[in-house]
Design a protein around this nucleic acid. Structure first.
Lengths: 208, 208, 208, 208
DNA sequence: CATGAATGAGACTTCATTCAT
DNA sequence: CATGAATGAAGTCTCATTCAT
């Protein structure tokens, strides 16, 4: 396929960009179709190259997944950390993270779609796990840190199970991201976050 | 009748039970490995039959998925409706549903795993959608109903976006189920739900 | 590609024969073209089936090679042992083995071609080694036994290096088989064996 | 001149040496792994260049094989002729050739490995044949010559089949070389040749 | 002289599915 | 009701080779 129909090196030295294009296309496919259903052929078609060309940039499909993973996870949690650091209380921080997640999702829906799926994919294809080590655990580290800081600051009742709370926050974020992703409509995410914040404010339910 | 009753000739073969075994094995595989990675061969091996034998019970792999879907979704939302009907306020009902979901998950983890994945699978394999019609939308109907009833009962501030709230509740449930499923440890689900209820109670955070 | 152009089970239950046909075709290809250059497609074409059908009989190409190996090696050395047992002195036994090898080669040239190549193939594709264990070492055992018996019978000078002699006999057989195989003309094998026997007789060279 | 002499500008690049390195690496790979399994990438890695660079020295993989062939065959048979010319009787000449072959094998095992495999490789990849013409037949010419000279000198009984004897000598040499190559242990070659010479001497077997 | 990007052909293998038994 | 033989489509990956730089 290619662009000119002939073999050989293409006129322009677009190597670095091709790599970026491959990673992007791969993330979109992995997010939408899952690891298994994503084929090299589809990714290559998205980029406008031959399936074999992918092997100049990564060693295997699994390595491609890993490359996308490292790229993405780093970017997302860096953004989350930034968003959280702008606030000082747990709920406000969590709200800020939810909003930042929404912005990311609007900017590139495949980011959330990819991350939400990572846990399942690694469960289904354990051979991926080995390649993901570097960034593994960052999710838990982030929410665990958020809760631990709140506890240290005396924001939480002393008998609160911090692990449970950390899991809860993570689950709410993931659940919302998943919902928006499946719905394909970011405005539903926004509306759900609004409802959540009204709950935080106490302006959601009339009686308790 | 025929299975529990005593009148008449009992079925020669174990046809009906084989069907149940196939559906169960399929749900477990679909939940754990996903639609694509689940093969007829694996399901058949779990049941102790040949892959071809599956075609006596369903027309295709997609139809098998649909059969599992209808079975499962009906069971789950029937349970949810039952759990909700035992309470009278929104948050209490939601709590009851969360707890019932946990019981289901403990009883058979593949139920939650399967349901959590449905939305993604249908996105990834649109040909499944047609077969899922009958029960489609039951999720939204359930949570929409919950919120609508609360609104009708005056439990909610009048300007609350009901759709957003409904999405939020669904997302929290799904996020928690997903987390527990991935973790493979139901106790983390329980702990997270505990944290959520303390939040409802107002005994989670010290300041608001 | 099949015989009728349609999928499904063929009319006749020729399973066992198909298996034999596959093994035979595989041996011929492995002997003529080598392990690497032999493709499932070629073997299947020889048999008149689809490449995929091969996987009903063996698990992989390597397993197919192993199956051919066990089949063939057993047959050959059984014949050799039989031929040797009909004589009582080392050189006569060796001659008998050479003649029997020639008969085998005429009956089915792929037998010799395959065996001659085994050592190189296993060197080149070490993953084959594991599958070949059962019959491995039969070559050395056979020639070692021949020499040991001659020594025990006092046929050899006491200071003869038995291992060296055993290697020599094996090498001569293999060298001859290889030559005939490459030449594709069994009569050259016969002529060379004739020369060798004249040498044994002392009627080859005039002076020594 | 240019490489050993001191006059004139030394070649800027190391072109000629790179060529030699490529041929050497190729011979080793061809000998060990066979034509098919030897890849340009492996050869290039051995030399420390890129696969593409090989195409500056040869036109194709097949041409590379041919180049190695001509190089090697010429060297070997030149040595053999030299060794043979130092003796005057057939068996002594053959012994000398066997010993010289052993020396070559010790000096560079890939030489024997390559040559032993040539016949099979050309059978398997007939497209190589065309490229090998120049030196083709040198093997037969050499052993044919050896036998013809012995016959002319009256060393052989007049009714001996010269072609058969020539094939026999070639087969013994090849069989031994192959054995040593597969065993990876030149001492076994030596021991086998010792046994052969004791046979020539009449000091191997006690009775005939 | 050498590299890096890219290609097309083809290899092995898996899978859902079908048909005769 | 169930099996076993077989198929065609498709997927991942390797390789020799080419062209522009």
């Amino acid at each position: 396929m290619g662009t000119s129909g002939r073999v050989g090196r293409p006129p322009a030295g677009n190597s670095e960009e091709t790599r970026r294009l491959i990673l992007r296309a791969a993330r979109e496919r992995f997010a939408r179709d899952g690891y298994r259903a994503t084929t090299n052929k589809l990714i290559a078609a998205d980029v406008g190259i031959t399936p074999t060309a992918i092997y100049h940039y990564v060693d295997s499909k699994a390595a491609l997944y890993a490359a996308v993973y490292c790229d993405t996870i780093d970017r997302v949690y860096t953004e989350f950390e930034q968003a959280a650091s702008a606030e000082s209380h747990l709920l406000a921080r969590f709200s800020a993270v939810l909003r930042r997640a929404n912005e990311l999702q609007i900017a590139d829906p495949s980011i959330a779609g990819f991350i939400v799926a990572v846990a399942q994919e690694t469960q289904r294809h354990p051979d991926l796990l080995a390649l993901l080590r570097p960034q593994r655990g960052r999710h838990q580290r982030f929410f665990g840190g958020l809760v631990a800081e709140a506890a240290a600051a005396g924001e939480l009742q002393p008998d609160v199970d911090q692990a449970g709370l950390s899991d809860l926050l993570g689950a709410v974020l993931t659940g919302l991201a998943r919902m928006a992703n499946v719905a394909g409509d970011p405005s539903r995410y926004t509306a759900a976050v609004d409802a959540l914040e009204r709950f935080f404010d106490g302006t959601l339910v009339t009686t308790r």
